[in-house]
Design a protein around this nucleic acid. Structure first.
Lengths: 139, 139
DNA sequence: TCGAAAAGCACCGAAATAGTGCTAAAATAC
DNA sequence: GTATTTTAGCACTATTTCGGTGCTTTTCGA
């Protein structure tokens, strides 16, 4: 149903949380307590985001994750791609499709796919936050 | 990964095919031969579309399915909704979400969801077809 | 009355997803 | 340098969704 996976959903929530605490390192424990998410799963997700370079991590007491750059520079598409692969409505769009020859809607689906990709490219993690909690500037 | 299900994919292909043969009844057999799709599955899909009133069926020899109204009046969103339920990026958007309280991105995700829904509302089955095969006016 | 075609119902297998367990490595505090 | 906090890595299980099929019934035309 065109759903995001939980990974993306949790990932976006966590990133939004980090965005509301700029430059602060937030531990997985803190985040899951705050957002009420399954700990190990969010840990997995943040690890992936870290590997992909959207967040940076430090270990040990006082450690955790923080955004590498401002949330305004982080499009949703980037997050979704990291956590669930390329944004494509059909396999055709992701790579190759055995139906090629008989597929009469290939180009049409291509247009839809890029429109949707555009929506996700244009919106950033910063915009996910309600206006109030946006950039509170608290250290 | 934000994918359509095969049901939607096959359904859209079949509808596009019907659109290229206006007012003609096309049997499942004919369609799957033409488009190289699994027969029983497409039958299932067309049955659902029929129940939902986007195509009409007649049985017996010479029977099959045809569009109830022109493909220009059939938005992709309608098809996807029939075949896989409401277009929603998260469960939150489809109905209720237990995280409500702790979910800081609810309104944000709501905005993305409606943008995507709009994309699918604005594009019709007619637009899926490459310009050449559009409305051939045969018969 | 025979054959073609949709309608209904129920089921199966495979793949993707959600989620967990455990151990290792790093950083800090004492 | 030892204990503690926290991320990193690896592997695994359970559940759900999805793709696909079988079989019977009903309808319609020839």
């Amino acid at each position: 149903m065109l759903r995001l996976t939980r990974r993306s959903e949790y990932g976006l929530m966590a990133l939004a949380y980090l965005a509301s605490r700029p430059r602060e390192y937030c531990s997985v424990r803190e985040i899951v307590e705050e957002l009420k998410l399954p700990k190990r799963l969010l840990a997995e997700v943040l690890k992936d985001l870290s590997r992909a370079g959207t967040v940076e991590a430090t270990r040990g007491p006082g450690g955790g994750y923080r955004l590498v750059r401002s949330a305004e520079e982080l499009p949703l598409a980037r997050v979704v791609e990291i956590l669930e692969g390329p944004v494509a409505m059909t396999d055709c769009m992701a790579q190759t499709c055995e139906l090629e020859a008989s597929c009469i809607i290939q180009t049409g689906i291509g247009r839809v796919t890029s429109s949707i990709r555009n929506v996700l490219e244009d919106m950033t993690v910063a915009e996910l936050l309600p206006a109030s909690s946006e950039a509170p500037l608290a250290v």
